[in-house]
């Protein structure tokens, strides 16, 4: 059941994130981006298969884990995704702040001219 429930959670995260990204406001856009980032990470995590087994760390004294462990690969993927997501959000923020300063507005619909 956890998978179904978490899938629902992911859907809500995405829906809220997408809605915020469509608001014509820089700050809301950034928050939406953050929500979608969480949703994406959870998606990978859930899709790879949830379990309550041991963390992927080999105990001291043995060379091969004796008890079953969680799949470590998706964790490695998500770990970098978290950090990159943070870097991306932060960069978008800097970008928007400078755009805001140049354009004098935080209305995303009014920033069209910067494209040209």
């Amino acid at each position: 059941m956890t998978e179904v429930f978490l899938s629902l959670v992911i859907g809500v995260l995405y829906a809220a994130g997408l809605y915020l990204m469509m608001c014509r406001n820089i700050a809301k856009f950034i928050i939406g981006l953050g929500l979608i980032g969480h949703g994406a990470n959870l998606l990978i995590f859930t899709a790879a298969g949830l379990s309550t087994q041991r963390a992927p760390i080999v105990p001291e004294g043995v060379t091969i884990p004796v008890v079953p462990i969680v799949d470590p690969l998706p964790q490695a993927l998500i770990l970098t995704a978290i950090v990159i997501g943070f870097g991306l959000t932060a960069f978008v923020l800097v970008l928007f702040l400078s755009a805001h300063e140049v354009e004098g507005t935080d209305d995303l619909e009014k920033m069209r001219s910067t494209d040209q």
Partner: peptide
């Protein structure tokens, strides 16, 4: 790299804050 990037971005944001817009 992670340290440098985080500091680069956070410090540049605080730079924006100092100036009243």
């Amino acid at each position: 790299v992670v340290l440098g990037v985080t500091l680069a971005i956070l410090l540049s944001i605080s730079n924006f804050r100092k100036s009243p817009s």
